[in-house]
Write a protein that binds this DNA or RNA. Structure first.
Lengths: 259, 259
DNA sequence: ACATGTGAAATGGTTCACAGCT
DNA sequence: AGCTGTGAACCATTTCACATGT
């Protein structure tokens, strides 16, 4: 049987062709909100979000400029990496001085597409879904929760965090009507794939999946997974590895049986 | 022996052969226990957890053997990567045939350190903490929640998911007493660092952090972060990038294929 | 025939270290 | 004098492709 190649998240797009040797003059139109997302490494994108939070906190504290060394420490990365990451945005620092906090916040927001709103739908109003719905417009505006879904008849119409719960069957219709762009799946694993399909049918472009299943989606859909069990198991691995290492005092720990 | 899997996806309850010393993996134990665990790439570890879940589901459905192609499709990766990942465990496949599901489950469990228990403490019993506490022994036993903490006086002593809530101040003492090895932080960001410090003082080795802050920890502590805002912002980035691409800037015959 | 296991190549990401600007 | 921006070295991970074993 020919397994239908399932692609999941991590859709790394080709493109690039930039980085011409010594040719440095993209002459990027500043005010141009588009034309930017050239080829920022996936890994760097995740860190930009972290820098943004740290910078926002600094701005609140009154900082106006910050050096790569300082920002890096606060974000938990080394300064070379931070500078490299910021360089993907363009050159917004001042040599000998550092970066202007406000400018950086603005540039990162623009790059991450935070200048527009992304309406969110949460599916599965159990413990987790409830927590998510009450998060109320996730990270300070920008991600308003505009639709909630569940199967439980008792929840229909009941407002959670201000939004009335609708039925799973209405996902396509409601998502399309409200222009939902991000769907959050917080259902039991058995329902996840079907919910995913309906979200896609409703025009959702991205999915944040909390259910422990590997979703199959069309390739234009971006999926990110948050998996508690996987996280714990990774930690478990490290605990085990550490315990084993402790058994040996030399390079290649050669302890014996696992306990 | 043949682990009787929990139930269906009801909770993705995987494995854990209670005490494995007697089951299908004792023979291997004296061969080369965990020495190899030293060199498994971090990225592969995360995927092993996924394979494990898929394999558990397959075992429940009665599959006894599986080919890399099939398992890869179910796990959402390509077969070459899957085989490479499994090769880090040792050679447990049969050329021309595939892998024995049970054997693989056993080997992955052993490698991830799932043959021992990892007691978990959840700090911050708000919406999220509540959801986590009720998860009840996370991935089907193996990660029993044995302590809960919060600051709210009204919660002291109140049992949540069977465990009474203690005060944050008692984190070091209680964690040490109960032998907690994994701490889960589900508090507001302002409290996170202080909670983290107390968990470390209490002897926990790993921390799973849901609070949107970069924790500072001694280097022997393993920290993993689950950050909702970051996940959403990454998705936002992709939505924006896609929107920009659509604006069609270069009629390159490049199309927009991913892959 | 068929599917694993694995060197080797390719790709992606990180760190170094220093030229270049303020 | 100080700090950014970035080629180039370096390391990690993925993919290729085929020898190997059943």
């Amino acid at each position: 049987m020919v397994a239908r190649r399932g692609r999941r998240n991590g859709a790394e797009v080709p493109f690039d062709a930039d980085n011409a040797p010594t040719a440095e003059m993209p002459a990027v139109t500043d005010a141009d909100p588009v034309v930017r997302a050239k080829s920022i490494p996936e890994a760097a994108v995740a860190r930009l979000a972290v820098y943004l939070r740290v910078l926002s906190a600094m701005a609140e504290q009154g900082s106006t400029t910050v050096a790569s060394e300082e920002l890096a420490a606060a974000a938990g990365v080394n300064s070379a990496k931070l500078r490299k990451d910021l360089s993907y945005l363009g050159s917004y620092g001042t040599r000998g001085v550092g970066y202007d906090v406000q400018v950086l916040v603005g540039q990162i927001e623009r790059t991450l597409g935070l200048t527009r709103q992304h309406k969110v739908a949460v599916v599965g109003i159990g413990n987790l879904g409830h927590a998510l719905a009450n998060y109320g417009g996730f990270p300070g505006r920008g991600f308003p929760v505009e639709a909630l879904f569940d199967v439980d008849a008792d929840l229909m119409g009941v407002p959670v965090g201000g939004i009335p719960v609708s039925h799973l069957d209405d996902i396509p219709k409601v998502c399309a009507e409200r222009g939902i762009s991000i769907g959050v799946i917080a259902t039991p694993p058995t329902a996840a794939q079907s919910v995913c399909d309906r979200l896609v049918a409703g025009g959702v472009q991205c999915i944040l999946n909390f259910a422990p299943v590997v979703l199959q989606v069309p390739e234009h859909i971006e999926v990110r997974k948050v998996d508690l069990a996987v996280e714990l198991q990774i930690l478990s691995f490290h605990v085990a590895r550490r315990a084993d290492e402790t058994k040996g005092s030399h390079p290649v720990g050669n302890g014996m049986v696992v306990r």
